[in-house]
Design a binder for these strands. Sequence first.
DNA 1: GATATAATTTAGGCATGCCTAAACTTTATA
DNA 2: TATAAAGTTTAGGCATGCCTAAATTATATC
Lengths: 215, 215
Amino acid sequence: MQSMAREDYLKSLWKLGSKNVANQELANHLGVTPASATNMIQKLSKEGLVDYIPYKGASLTGKGVKEALSVVRRHRLLESFLSKTLGLSREDLHVEAERLEHALSKELEHEIAKYLGNPIRDPHGHPIPGPNGEIYTNDDLLLSKSPINESLMIRQVPDSNSEILAWLEFNGMVPGAQIIIVSKNQFDGGMAANINNKIIHISTTVSNLVYVSIE
Amino acid sequence: MQSMAREDYLKSLWKLGSKNVANQELANHLGVTPASATNMIQKLSKEGLVDYIPYKGASLTGKGVKEALSVVRRHRLLESFLSKTLGLSREDLHVEAERLEHALSKELEHEIAKYLGNPIRDPHGHPIPGPNGEIYTNDDLLLSKSPINESLMIRQVPDSNSEILAWLEFNGMVPGAQIIIVSKNQFDGGMAANINNKIIHISTTVSNLVYVSIE
DNA sequence: GATATAATTTAGGCATGCCTAAACTTTATA
DNA sequence: TATAAAGTTTAGGCATGCCTAAATTATATC
């Protein structure tokens, strides 16, 4: 059984990608000092949850990934559960799930998954790992890298930036919505797109946070 | 904001009654050594949450009661919520709520209360304190002290003894059920009662844990 | 009322996980 | 390539909250 702090470290490492994560990047993401991060990484390394090369960064081992995905699963199931039952807004879900995820037992996790029909995506469209870490929905495309003049479906929006989330919501860019890129900017991932028969301008920042699929 | 440990101490003090609680009793209830209990009580005393006389025990101050009731409210709302949404059995509710209660934000507490229609009792029939600690349902009678040959309604069953809970459930002694005491034992609170047209024998232990109201 | 027993508190330790400041690597720049 | 800057680690501390063992106080018994 992992402590909350350990679970947070594992989850952050997972979110920061499968690459070697720099100490500072990890510390920043968790809101702790680099010294604290080093300390915990060394512990997790001794336990075989992360691969660690001093001064070079850390990454999750297979065992670490499994633990991380268990936290992610709990988080996303909770978001789905709170969305379905209480109808919380996409903006509020994340912060509540963040608090509860560490306190969810295996049994309750299972009950919630059953109640929801073992969902594969959460309300932001993010994949919900299975009880053993399986992820089924890996083929979504980054909006900034998607083809022009094709009918696309919004698949994933971010979960933790409520400003961007509110903007997306306001413009109808929610999971399940249809969108067609009508033009792309010359030098970056910015674009103009047609959604609900309105043309909106989407910044690089946003188009790099939204995933779509080709219909 | 209280830590989980502090919240557990406050809740235990509240559950153990408005009397002065002996150190050992508190330590037992929390599964902690007497030395640990003394230590925490002294901290809580310094913060004005408990009245403490060395060697004589401790009791909650007004401020302490309010904090304790906030934890109890969260616990009972969670039990109600998990019961309504997931249909967890009365036996499972307690242990799950026990884990989650410390992680429930004020906002989510409010949303859950709203969703449930601001209930006054949880699935065990226990009163749910209001957001400011108000308790409305204080007039239930202990079954062991209730009159014979009167139509009674079961109001409260225990939440944490799953053996007794299972027995009660099996015999139809759940909140809302009707019961008539047909005879009382000579020397203790044991009794025979009619429930669903069956006569069952109820031990003192049980009749001291169940509350009823006169219909 | 003295004394044995039980309850409580104090003293000293330990694990977790955070911090700052100083020492040490690595990387970037002149 | 030497050196400055940036990033990382070590060392030493602190708060929380638990423990055991020893000292103290209260209670029960003779």
